[in-house]
Design a protein around this nucleic acid. Sequence first.
DNA 1: CTCGCCAACATTGTTGAACAATCCATACTT
DNA 2: AAGTATGGATTGTTCAACAATGTTGGCGAG
Lengths: 222, 222
Amino acid sequence: MTLGEEPAAEHAHTTAWIASVLRGRIAAGRLTPGSKLSEQSLSAALGVSRNTLRQAFTTLAGESIVTRVPNRGVFVASPGAEEVREIYRVRRTIEPAAVLWGEATPEALNAMEAIVQRAQAAREAGSVADMAGANQEFHEAVVGLTGSSALRALMDRVLAEMRLVFYAMASAPDFHSHYVSRNAGLVQRLRAGQNELAATELREYLDAAEAELLEHLTGVAQ
Amino acid sequence: MTLGEEPAAEHAHTTAWIASVLRGRIAAGRLTPGSKLSEQSLSAALGVSRNTLRQAFTTLAGESIVTRVPNRGVFVASPGAEEVREIYRVRRTIEPAAVLWGEATPEALNAMEAIVQRAQAAREAGSVADMAGANQEFHEAVVGLTGSSALRALMDRVLAEMRLVFYAMASAPDFHSHYVSRNAGLVQRLRAGQNELAATELREYLDAAEAELLEHLTGVAQ
DNA sequence: CTCGCCAACATTGTTGAACAATCCATACTT
DNA sequence: AAGTATGGATTGTTCAACAATGTTGGCGAG
């Protein structure tokens, strides 16, 4: 739990294990955007060969969690304004499509409503992290309506990049709380079978979120 | 050295180079679905170390062009019925969304129309390969309307998997020719600003294509 | 004093060999 | 003949080395 790495738990795929460890550290904010991941130090710290670490790097680079600069090394991705725009291009495409054409079964809607309630509870408790987590879970559930694992994986990557955006921002504004009630409204629309209305509202939602994020991003940095 | 691999042109990123070579061979059908990619033979044939070949494998596995079975090796992916369903879940989500909400600029429409004409010419010339290629290009252009490189990359992967499906089929039916005229109609709808109609027609289009493919697939194999 | 060149250093990219772990196939035992 | 044991082959991982490239510092010229 400290800083040491002692697991040494022989795993089938050491490379996948290492990749997941790094993914977790980045997601948890222990490795901030822009940090350099030195092969030498990391291989020593994790107790694996430089070679397997390298393999883990290629998988993480494939997930665009990490960027590779030739002969310079790998760095934790530090998304800027352009990356944010790209993120919302993706979200504005697949999320409304999911609510419009996805299979909103009663079970799926119940699960989404449960997530919304968890987000509301977290908001009232003042736990920003939990609220942000529940919010991301909600949007993942939205994409899950398509039933496609590939789209879900893409959304995972996009949300991971979103987390990096938040870590890269100096000041962390109250970004999620505005949107919790909108999520609740979205579920209601879907329950009523008003999919088209839900889709257009979600697109406006995403437009607003992107604008807010971009404003905060360009206002602080660059 | 079987057939011509002699370049040995020192490339900046050997691993990326090797990955693209394998990608090309698979796309060209020289490596058919299910084939085993032996580390020993391939590393010798390509003139690279087993270690770098391994790294190239991880990138290809990330693109799901290749599947890795622990302690058994890597094989060219051989998509079955379930994979086809997944492919069309993705396509049925992002392609209609692209025509519905994407920016169909005049230049983009002109480019799409040019692709359609190339497909028609190939059909009349009887060149199935060219027609199939143009058809895939068309759908890539459709996704390109979103302006998102990530969605475009996803579509690339999906189309690569589609190619594997065709290679895996014993008999190659005339699959694409039915749909060339539909593509032309789609462009017309977009030119007229009838995006919603275009989207619903595209969804029906994709439904029909999936059904036809599944029928041929389950009829022949399994 | 500043600018540009140059050499030493550090890091990454790639290779080859080695060993453990696992799977497959053959041959052996009962 | 059926099940089991043994051997070989392939993959997974590590290590040590070298080549290629980037960085850093100092040096001298202007």
